Structures are given as structure tokens and as C-alpha cells.
Amino acid sequence: MIHRIEPDGVYGLPDLVSQISVPDGRRLAFLSGQVAWDEEGRVVGEGDHAVQAAQVALRIDRLLDALGARRQDIVKETIYVVDHEPHLTPSILAALHGAQPPSSTLVGVTKLFAPEFLIEVECVVALPDRKPDEEQACAR
């Protein structure tokens, strides 16, 4: 289980991000920064932050699925946004977050590794408990 904590006396936006995320006795996985590539390596949504955020979310969902995890298992994310403006934040976070938002940092940047990408997201995931036979399968 992941506990999301919003302490008194610390202003935040609890519908958008959690101030503290604490996983109970879980292993962690670290997802590399994800950008808006499709399955063939083509850029999706060039010039559109919201479309790129949706594609990044799809890629993260696929990585989570490979781990047997879900968006609720993300405990920390860092979102890099090219040419960030405050009005972009709701559509970006809406695409990335499930019912319970993780602890999150959004960083405005001038550019990413290639000019067509507007968003990159890296995540820390608390992996769900597995049975011993699943441990063997993942070790291969």
C-alpha cells in the first residue's frame, strides 16, 4: 500500500500532486525519462504539449504493465516541460495522473535532447508484492 499524506500547515494542490508518498515495505523501480515516441519511434504530437503528455502516459502505462504495476504505484515523478506556461499544467497532469496523484515536480526547461519533444517524464514506482515463483521469472 502507498500512503499519500497532506500534512496540516503545508499548502499544496492535493488534487494534482501528493506532498508525501510512502510505500509500505516495497521494492522500487526507476523508469527512465519517457518522451512522446510511438511504437515505431515516430514523434507523436509535435508542437502540442497535451498530446505529447498523453503519449508519454501511454508509454508509462506500458512500462508499468511490464512491472505488474499501475499508475497508483508511482510514488514520485519528475516532469520536464519545454517552454512551460502555467496554463499548460492542468492538461499535462490530467494525462499523467490516475485517481491518486504521486509526489511530483514539474520543471520548465528550454529544451530536451531533441527539439521535437516538449515533455519528458521519469518515475519512481513502488512495485507490488510478488509471489516467490514470480521472483524467479523476473530474475531471468
Rank of each mutant, 00 (worst) to 15 (best):
R4F: 08
E6F: 15
D8A: 15
D8M: 15
G9R: 09
G9E: 09
V10C: 02
V10Y: 05
Y11A: 14
Y11V: 09
G12T: 08
L13Q: 12
L13E: 13
P14L: 08
D15T: 06
L16V: 14
V17F: 14
S18A: 08
Q19I: 13
Q19V: 13
V22D: 10
V22T: 10
P23I: 10
P23W: 11
D24F: 13
G25N: 15
R27Y: 12
A29W: 13
F30T: 08
F30K: 05
S32L: 04
Q34P: 01
A36Q: 01
W37S: 01
D38E: 03
E39V: 02
E39H: 04
E40L: 05
E40K: 05
R42T: 08
V43C: 10
G45C: 06
D48G: 01
D48W: 04
D48H: 04
H49E: 14
Q52F: 05
A53M: 01
I60C: 07
I60H: 06
R62C: 06
L63C: 12
L64M: 08
D65R: 15
A69V: 02
R70K: 13
R70N: 09
R71M: 04
D73R: 03
I74R: 13
K76F: 15
E77Q: 14
I79N: 00
V81F: 05
E85R: 12
H87D: 05
T89G: 04
T89R: 08
L93H: 13
A95T: 03
L96P: 01
G98F: 07
A99G: 03
Q100K: 10
P101L: 00
T105M: 07
L106N: 02
L106M: 15
L106K: 02
V107H: 01
A114V: 12
F117K: 05
L118S: 05
I119H: 07
V121M: 00
V125Q: 07
L127P: 09
L127E: 12
P128H: 12
P128Y: 13
D129Y: 04
K131W: 14
P132K: 06
E135A: 10
E135N: 05
E135I: 07
A137M: 12
C138I: 08
C138R: 10
R140M: 04
R140D: 04
